[in-house]
């Protein structure tokens, strides 16, 4: 998994994840999120459009980010890939009702 972060002019962090977001890569992801939260970031867009696999540990890292960002008055919006694989874990765990799922990054930016 690669993590690419960039900040928009409106102070939203866009975090793009690719390949496998799983139990092996989750510790790095959690550390990255913690660092950004410690820097005062509260609003995030997690772009999973190039992710090929997401497991419950990867999903748990996203849920922790959502909890922490809400405690800071922020939010997390998610971009899902077109393939139904990664979408399925969101629906099976019902987190598709908890996260604000957006179609594209510009739409997600506009939704803040």
């Amino acid at each position: 998994m690669n993590i690419n972060s960039e900040k928009t002019t409106s102070d939203i962090m866009i975090i793009k994840l690719d390949d496998r977001v799983d139990t092996f890569s989750a510790p790095n992801l959690r550390a990255h999120f913690s660092k950004l939260l410690a820097q005062g970031r509260a609003n995030f867009i997690v772009d999973l459009s190039d992710a090929t696999f997401l497991d419950s540990a990867g999903l748990a890292a996203l849920v922790k980010l959502l909890k922490d960002s809400r405690e800071k008055g922020g939010n997390v919006k998610i971009i899902l890939p077109e393939n139904k694989s990664v979408r399925r874990i969101f629906s099976l765990t019902k987190f598709d009702r908890v996260f604000d799922i957006q179609l594209t990054v510009p739409m997600a930016v506009g939704a803040f």
Binding site: S56, A60, V63, K64, K67, I89, L92, T93, V98
Partner: peptide, 20 residues
């Protein structure tokens, strides 16, 4: 069973195995 609809972080693995 997992607590759906909340922000439970762990405990979905076995539920997923059964669902899939």
């Amino acid at each position: 069973s997992p607590d759906f609809g909340g922000l439970q972080i762990r405990g979905f693995g076995i539920h997923l195995v059964h669902q899939l």
